[in-house]
C-alpha cells in the first residue's frame, strides 16, 4: 500500500516539475529600465529631438520607422531584463551613432540560448536544426535570420503561457502575414510577386475563419514532437491539404496549436475535448462524449421500439 502512495507522489511531483518548465516568468519587473531610458527617449517615438552643436539649434527629426520600438511591448517581452547594449554595441551610447555600426553583426537565438541548460526545454538546437531544413533557410540562405519573424524587442513565449488560443493564432499569423501578405516586406527576400493570400487559399471553406482559428504553420510545417512551435517550414507543395488531418478526433492540432492546453487539461484531470470546447470549435474534432452516448442510446431505443412493435404486429397478424 505504501508503495502505491509513493508512486502517486512521484507521479504528482513529475507533473509539478513539468508545470515549472512550462511556465515562463512573465511577471517579474524589468531589471534595466533606467539604463535603457536614454535609448528609448529617441527610439520609442516617431519624432526625436537633439541639440545640433554646429548650428546651435534643437532639431526635430523623423525616426526611421524600423528603429521605433514600443517600450510597453519590450518590457512585457521575454528580453525585458536586458539593457540595449547587452545585445547592441556600447558605441551606440554616443550620438550621432557611428555609421559603421550599421554593419554590426546581429546575434541569432542560438548565439545566446544554444547549449544553455536553463533553456534546455526550449530546444533551441532543434529549432536551429529544423529551421535549417526549412524553405526559409534553403531558399534564402543567411539572408534569412530569426529576426525576420521573431521581433526580439517584443517577443513573448506565447505557446507555453496562459494566452488564449485566439491570441496565439493572431500573433503567430501576424509573423507570416507581415511578409507573405505584405508585398513591400516580401521584397526584402524575393523579387517575385505573390498572389494575395485569399486567392491562394480559396480552396478552404471560409478561409477567414480558418485564418483566425488556426495558424499558418499548422499546415505549412512538419511537426516535431520535442518542439512547441514547428520551425521546418515546408515547400508549399507539401502543405497539408487534407481536411481530416485537423477535422477528426485524432486532429493534428493536439500536437501543435493545442499542445500547451492539452497538457494543462490533462494535468487538471480534464479531457482534451473539454479544452477544445472552451475556446474553439473544429468540426469532426470536438466530440462530446456524453452527447455521443446519449445519441447512441436514443437511436438504439428508437430502433428497439420499432423492432418490438414489428414483432408484435407480425405475431398478432
Amino acid at each position: 500500500m505504501k508503495i502505491r502512495y509513493f508512486l502517486i507522489l512521484i507521479f504528482l511531483l513529475s507533473f509539478s516539475s513539468l508545470w515549472a518548465q512550462l511556465n515562463v516568468d512573465m511577471k517579474s519587473e524589468p531589471a534595466k529600465m533606467e539604463d535603457n531610458k536614454r535609448c528609448f527617449d529617441c527610439h520609442s517615438t516617431h519624432i526625436y529631438t537633439f541639440d545640433n552643436p554646429v548650428s546651435g539649434i534643437t532639431e526635430r527629426k523623423e525616426m526611421n520607422p524600423n528603429f521605433v520600438f514600443n517600450t510597453d511591448a519590450f518590457y512585457s517581452g521575454v528580453h525585458r531584463h536586458f539593457s540595449c547594449t547587452d545585445c547592441h554595441s556600447p558605441d551606440y551610447e554616443t550620438f550621432p551613432h557611428n555609421a559603421e555600426l550599421r554593419f554590426e553583426p546581429m546575434y541569432s537565438c542560438i548565439d545566446c540560448h544554444g547549449g544553455d541548460e536553463a533553456f534546455a526545454s526550449y530546444h533551441f538546437e532543434t529549432i536551429e536544426e529544423e529551421f535549417g531544413k526549412s524553405v526559409h533557410a534553403s531558399k534564402h540562405n543567411e539572408n534569412f535570420n530569426c529576426w525576420m519573424c521573431h521581433n526580439p524587442h517584443s517577443y513573448k513565449a506565447m505557446t507555453r503561457s496562459d494566452f488564449k488560443i485566439s491570441e496565439i493564432v493572431s500573433a503567430h499569423n501576424q509573423m507570416c502575414a507581415s511578409c507573405h501578405d505584405n508585398p513591400l516586406h516580401f521584397q526584402r527576400i524575393s523579387d517575385s510577386t505573390k498572389k494575395p493570400l485569399e486567392e491562394i487559399h480559396k480552396f478552404l471553406p471560409n478561409f477567414k475563419l480558418h485564418f483566425s482559428a488556426v495558424r499558418c504553420i499548422e499546415c505549412h510545417t512538419a511537426v516535431e514532437d520535442t518542439m512547441w512551435v514547428a520551425h521546418n517550414i515546408l515547400p508549399k507543395e507539401m502543405a497539408v491539404k487534407k481536411c481530416v488531418e485537423c477535422h477528426s478526433s485524432s486532429t493534428m492540432l493536439i500536437s501543435s496549436l493545442y499542445k500547451y492546453q492539452t497538457i494543462e487539461t490533462r494535468k487538471n484531470r480534464g479531457t482534451f475535448n473539454s479544452m477544445l470546447l472552451n475556446e474553439t470549435y473544429v468540426i469532426g474534432a470536438n466530440r462530446n462524449i456524453y452527447l455521443n452516448i446519449f445519441s447512441i442510446i436514443l437511436f438504439g431505443l428508437s430502433l428497439l421500439g420499432v423492432a418490438v412493435h414489428v414483432f408484435f404486429r407480425i405475431k398478432k397478424k
Binding site: 480552396f203 487534407k242 481536411c243 481530416v244 477535422h247 477528426s248 478526433s249 485524432s250 469532426g284 466530440r287
Partner: peptide
C-alpha cells in the same frame, strides 16, 4: 460524416 470524420475511414470525403 462530418461529425465523425475519420482519416482512416471516410464515409464521404470531408471537403
Amino acid at each position: 460524416s462530418l461529425q465523425y470524420s475519420n482519416p482512416d475511414y471516410q464515409l464521404i470525403r470531408f471537403d
